[in-house]
Design a protein around this nucleic acid. Structure first.
Lengths: 189, 189
DNA sequence: GGAATCATTTGCCATTTGGCAAAAAGTAAT
DNA sequence: ATTACTTTTTGCCAAATGGCAAATGATTCC
């Protein structure tokens, strides 16, 4: 819980009563590996802060392949980007790739906080922008790098994850096939 | 000017006096092809809405190569992403790839509008999020596509541009070398 | 017009990655 | 332990892309 509050305080001021109010709105959700937090086709009704664990966001492309769009790790929000304007059905799946402990805000809680706390909306919009901004900066250079470099970059960011998730998740994130990734792994050893 | 107002109205309400106020803050800036709107290392002091023309945003990678991060076309804002938190020096260059007519807000104007117009900040943050969101959704599938598909996608979005800008701009955006792009072009005809 | 300069295309070959299928390794259930 | 099932690795070859340098084409400037 402290992680969440510290995270929020990076983006704006909150006094003690406000902090207590935020805390009172949060629910803990434990997710087992492979369970879904949200699914495409549904309108997301909640937002998660990752206290522990790693999520992945995926979608199905035209060819019917499941593509991992990105991973989200601890102390970050799983903002459902495809419905950031709210009320539209998501086109993304959000799934736990490890056991996760999430802190959940329901849509109703968020609106209440938005009304009650001056500056809450500003905090949320900064968080959203920052998350998106980081994704752009992550993705953009990937195009220019070869697959081995992309894999190594992934290893740097998620050192323990690479051998605990299916190859297919990682390969689609890196934009290569499973067998290519398998070969890249072999060559790195 | 009407384009700008219509664009803003997509994201929030503005009454006539507010619209007039916004208009009074805007300055027109004409940029010739190849001129820079902003440069890395400087703290950006203004924000541009593209009335006519196309900009490109670039940076230099570790190897010293200039990489085109993305293109921005008409009726969009050139939000300087790398300094969205403000006050930090940009690491990006923003350059006109065609003659451009821009509508400019200075930082001071923006703060004034922020204070004067209730909901202005909300409009701006929505615009920022939307722009970033679209970039993520653009970039993410590119990784999984081959270079020819990426080139064709670019052609769809900027039909007239491909033959009017240096190959190097486009190749670095697509994540391939100039000669590869040249060959792709040849094969498409 | 001609020289100098810059951008693009092309040839040649090396490297990377894909596609497909079979083998091997790992996992789960009985 | 055996079976069934899933995931990963591997082999083989084709296709895509890179690297480099030379040739060609375009542009600018005098």
């Amino acid at each position: 819980m402290e992680n969440l509050i510290n995270y929020l305080l990076q983006f704006g001021q909150l006094n003690q009563p406000q902090i207590d109010l935020v805390k009172s709105k949060v629910k803990v959700l434990e997710l087992k590996k492979d369970e879904y937090f949200s699914e495409a086709g549904k309108v997301p009704k909640r937002v998660a802060f990752i206290n522990e664990g790693i999520l992945r966001v995926s979608y199905f492309n035209i060819k019917g392949e499941e593509i991992t769009k990105y991973f989200i790790d601890e102390n970050n929000f799983a903002v459902d980007l495809s419905s950031y304007t709210q009320k539209i059905a998501s086109s993304e799946y959000v799934q736990a790739v490890t056991d996760c402990s999430l802190l959940i805000f329901s849509t109703e809680s968020l609106s209440e906080l938005s009304i009650t706390i001056i500056g809450w909306d500003n905090i949320i919009s900064q968080i959203t922008s920052k998350a998106l901004f980081e994704k752009v900066n992550k993705l953009s250079p990937m195009l220019a790098e070869d697959a081995t470099t992309r894999y190594n970059d992934f290893l740097k960011k998620f050192p323990t994850l690479a051998n605990r998730i299916p190859l297919s998740y990682l390969a689609s994130y890196l934009g290569i096939t499973q067998s290519s990734l398998s070969r890249i792994r072999k060559n790195i050893r």
